[in-house]
């Protein structure tokens, strides 16, 4: 059975902050920090936005584009995030209710650092492929945390994308998916802690680069393909630098990653990062385009996908919801004080 993407939707909050503004507060040359990370600005959620509202907006856009799909035919919803608003109480049930998919369905929240969204796509593929559900929804959505003054504060941002996985009228066939997973503690957040910690440069070579290149090579081997066989490539993007470097290491060109790399303009949306990059690729995709996708989640693992855009994308009602380029128009820039207020970093009376 062919399994693939039936629809998708993406959402990024409207507010932005620039690295130089963050650096101004902490006595750091934010501009060169941003240059080094290849981050021009990052998105900031409004105080009334969280993983639930971002996931809902993305999921509603996804459903708006397939008015022929009855939400009651959705049999599973998985939402990946590392900033679920509740430690206990699912995000997925709220989103399921908001798109009218309840109650004959299963739902669960996922956590695997930045790859929980792609893990959801794999879970849905399994359920659809096994004939257990007609459609599954996988969402990667985050309002990620970076400790004040930490390097992560320059990148940690907010956004998400939703995917309707099924086997009918698929606009992009997922030819194969596989994963590379080890126990590598490069980045973590303990229960009850407000900010994550990370292993500094340890997050690079043994973590991000090893897992992405391993999963990617496994995929190329399995499919018997070379980087030039793909029109587009999307890699996990904690900053602009890492994905650019990993693409070069694997033999992908800057043109191949141009649509899939959003972090320089919106920051690191964590679980939302690869799903958003793929959404932007699909916004520009044509029938026959082959897409190479590799996510990365600290802890650590990478999910690789080999995708082919189908002819069905021609009749796909993409214009029923705004494409990412439009969503990213008209940002509102905030200063650090507003950012700190929006993110709840100011101690308030109870």
């Amino acid at each position: 059975m062919e399994v693939g993407i039936v629809s998708y939707g993406a959402y990024v909050p409207r507010y932005r902050i620039k690295p130089e503004e963050i650096g101004r507060i902490w006595g750091v040359d934010g501009k060169s920090m941003g240059k080094g990370l290849m981050i021009n600005q990052k998105s900031v959620p409004s105080p009334d936005e969280d993983v639930v509202t971002i996931a809902t907006e993305a999921a509603r856009y996804m459903m708006d584009r397939v008015p022929e799909v009855d939400p009651k035919d959705i049999g599973a919803i998985y939402i990946g995030s590392e900033s679920h608003p509740y430690a206990v109480k699912p995000t997925s049930t709220i989103v399921a209710e908001a798109i009218g998919a309840t109650p004959a369905m299963t739902a669960a929240d996922m956590e695997f650092a930045c790859k929980a969204g792609t893990a959801g796509i794999q879970a849905c593929m399994g359920l659809v492929g096994a004939g257990m559900v007609r459609y599954g929804v996988a969402i990667g959505s985050d309002t990620s945390q970076g400790a004040p003054g930490d390097a992560l504060e320059y990148s940690a941002s907010a956004g998400g994308a939703a995917y309707l996985i099924g086997s009918e009228n698929i606009i992009a066939r997922i030819n194969k998916t596989l994963s590379f997973t080890t126990d590598t503690p490069d980045f973590w957040r303990r229960e009850g802690q407000p900010y994550p910690l990370h292993g500094g440069r340890f997050t690079g070579e043994p973590a991000y680069f090893r897992h992405i290149t391993s999963a990617a090579k496994m995929m190329l081997d399995a499919m018997g393909t070379k980087p030039e066989d793909y029109k587009h490539a999307v890699f996990h993007q904690p900053n602009g630098k890492f994905p650019t470097r990993v693409a070069a290491m694997l033999g992908f060109t800057p043109e191949q990653i141009q649509y899939g790399l959003l972090t320089p303009e919106i920051g690191n949306t964590y679980s939302g990062a690869v799903p958003l990059g793929l959404a932007n690729v699909l916004d520009h995709a044509e029938p026959g385009d082959r897409i190479f996708v590799t996510s990365y989640g600290s802890g650590a693992g990478s999910d690789a996908f080999d995708i082919t855009v189908t002819d069905a994308i021609k009749d796909y009602k993409r214009d029923n919801a705004p494409v990412l380029e439009r969503i990213l128009e008209n940002p509102v820039y905030v200063d650090y004080g507003t950012y700190a207020k929006f993110k709840g970093k100011i101690v308030m009376p109870e």
């Binding site: 639930v52 907006e57 908001a98």
Partner: peptide
């Protein structure tokens, strides 16, 4: 109409979502 947080019952209570 979009879905947003309306209110929460303090830091430990439930979060209320609704339309804006």
């Amino acid at each position: 109409a979009v879905l947003r947080k309306l209110d929460a019952d303090g830091k430990a209570g439930v979060i209320h979502y609704g339309y804006k």
